[in-house]
Amino acid sequence: MATLFAALRRLYLSIYNWTVFIGWFQVLFLALKSLKESGHEHVYNAVEKPLLLAQSAAALEILHGLIGLVRSPVSSTLPQVGSRLYLTWGILWSFPEIRTHILVSSLVISWSITEIIRYSFFGMKEAFGFAPSWHLWLRYSSFLVLYPTGISSEVGLVYFALPYIKGSEKYSVRMPNKWNFSLDYFYLAILALGFYVPGSPHLYRYMLAQRKRALSKSKKE
């Protein structure tokens, strides 16, 4: 029973990782292609479908952590996946005016390279039980550059979307109502920007610690 479960788990995680890998690979390919052929204004429209699919599939990672399928703690997956979902659905998908911004290109490229390395790394480990050492090194080193570029693109896009958010009443709830509730999406966006201030250095330090642990472990073996 236990071995059956372990085999099913491996099969499921292999399929999951490689499927999402294909999604991100498409994102990178389409982004670079449209950058070359038609300019950065068209990047979002080119990658929209695989981007929304691949990024939404990451929500399953929170579930994987919750039910104990993978070891990564929910407290670190939730803010990472949450902020990405906020960017893709809450900003890019919801406010088309921002889609032509140059930062969309740097965002999509940073995200997709990180995820291509990450999903193929875990896909290798689940499917074949190992990953080459250069792959391990890439998995725990690429963030050194790609996190700063990705996170500054995220912050920049929320910031430049602020006027469009304020201009529209989208997702905002106003008083009076029976449940005495109100929501201002504009202030929510400012709050989100506020979370990046302590959040990004925290995440970066967390990844640095992970890197130290993962790379020193591989040396010992």
């Binding site: 008083m175 009076p176 109502n177 029976k178 005495n180």
Partner: peptide, 8 residues
């Protein structure tokens, strides 16, 4: 919210 002018 409880003391809001538009409280219901």
């Amino acid at each position: 919210y409880v003391n809001h002018p538009l409280y219901t």
